[in-house]
Simulated assay, not measured.
Amino acid sequence: MPATALFEAATLGPLTLRNRFIKAATFEGMSKGAQVSNDLIDFHRRHATGGVAMTTVAYCAVAPEGRTERNQIWMRPEALPGLRRLTNAVHDEGAAVSAQIGHAGPVADSRSNGLPALAPSAAFSAQGLSRIRAASRDDIARITQAHADAALLAVEAGFDAVEIHLGHNYFASSFLSPKLNKRSDEYGGRLAGRAKVALGAARAVRDAVGDRIAILAKLNMDDGVPGGFWLDESLQVAQWLEADGSVDALELTAGSSLLNPMYLFRGDAPLQEFAAAMRNPVVRLGVKLVGKRFIRSYPYQEAYLLDSARQFRSALKLPLVLLGGVSQLETAEQGMAEGFQFMAMARALLREPDLINRMRRERSTRSLCVHCNKCMPTIFTGTRCVLVDTSAAPA
């Protein structure tokens, strides 16, 4: 057994986790009818059995128009029975469970949801082939309150934590972006105005749940888009979050689901698989013809977000979760040695849900993930690694 603190218990706000590994949020595509399914429960049970300290349910929209597509959980009383079954199943395996809550904003599929997508400023969605409406002040107030209500529902459902989605150009993140936010009111202009939505959502959640559960926020370090949100401004937002005391930890991320999704993932860009997964024939043709402009390829390397994340570590006392290319044990050890309290893993755990247990038993264990990213298009049919048969995995 390797002698490393990665496998020792650690505190996250009011929560004690059995080790330092968190299953990062990856939309599961297993919520038909916007409800918890047995497949979704089995998905998270596998990760809990496999050794992670906490698994993250993604994604739990705070409002019906905030879903990236209609078959996605949104936090409402009707979802409670299924959510309770899920949290109980994870707890039975000795792990904690977090609900990623947020509003997809301009990333929402208005055609699928039957409701308008919202953004700081009006725009056209090339993904949804529809108009995106500028959010009103009433929309902002409603969505802010919806974050608080969703967090309270998470407490009632038995979740140990919530992760507030402030990244990837979802609603709060789109307000942070000077490229997407062209408002002239109090929610636009200088960073203090553009940050009001993100800071307000985090404060609303803290006011609602207090210290009953841990509160994390997933914050973009940069959008990976010219003219978008960048490190200097993100550092300031992180410092404001820390000063406000609204979150117990930050998970540092990057990229724009709206404008540059592969900036986060790195590795191969599976264009053919993405095109085949598109239900809309017009979108499918568009991906085939011009997909390379949107689904770009970035070379993979271990800890590829670490250089940017170091700047946050040196500027903050707040616990930080390192994300991005953490697939080998020595990478996680490096992150911890540099002061990151928790390690978030996603694709490597899709390939091998029991990877953490095997690393704990034998430090020479190597992740088998090849970063082909062919797992990404499977979100439409049930997120999985296409290189293994997960149907045979233990429930």
Rank of each mutant, 00 (worst) to 15 (best):
Q311G: 00
C60P: 08
N280V: 07
T56W: 10
W230H: 09
R70F: 05
P319G: 02
E251P: 08
G224S: 05
F171M: 06
A119L: 05
R296F: 05
A99F: 04
F229M: 07
F124V: 12
D211C: 00
R183T: 14
P14S: 00
F229T: 11
V205E: 02
G324K: 05
V225G: 06
L368W: 04
L6K: 06
P116S: 09
V326Q: 09
A151V: 10
P226I: 09
H371G: 00
L329A: 09
R142Y: 07
A135K: 10
G105K: 14
A119K: 09
F175D: 08
Q100F: 06
A243D: 15
G210E: 04
A146Y: 06
G114P: 11
L152A: 15
I132C: 04
V283R: 10
D211L: 03
S327A: 12
S173Q: 08
A214F: 01
I143E: 04
A146G: 10
V155I: 15
L271E: 08
V205M: 06
L305V: 01
R206S: 06
S256H: 03
G66Q: 08
T253N: 04
G51M: 02
L199W: 09
T381W: 00
V209N: 02
C60N: 15
F27C: 07
N280E: 10
Y300I: 03
S130C: 10
V52Y: 02
L180M: 14
R310K: 11
F340R: 14
T4G: 05
A53N: 06
E8M: 08
R142G: 02
G227R: 05
R190E: 15
M343E: 14
E186M: 07
Q239M: 13
L219G: 04
N71L: 09
P319R: 09
Q301C: 13
A89G: 03
G255M: 05
A122P: 09
G200F: 02
R361K: 11
V326F: 11
T49A: 12
F43K: 04
A58G: 03
T383F: 08
R18Y: 08
D389H: 08
D244R: 14
A392R: 14
N357F: 00
L166D: 11
D109W: 10
I140T: 09
R212K: 13
E352H: 15
T49N: 00
D222V: 08
K374P: 00
A346M: 07
L12T: 07
L129G: 00
S31D: 09
D223V: 10
R111T: 03
Q145F: 01
R18G: 08
M278H: 01
E362K: 12
V282M: 13
S173M: 07
R45V: 15
Y300P: 04
A238Y: 07
A337Y: 11
T68C: 01
R131T: 09
R131D: 09
M359I: 03
L305K: 03
R76M: 00
I140L: 13
A135T: 12
A148I: 03
L320F: 10
D354C: 03
M359H: 04
Q311K: 13
A154R: 02
T390R: 10
L176E: 02
Q272E: 15
E163Q: 15
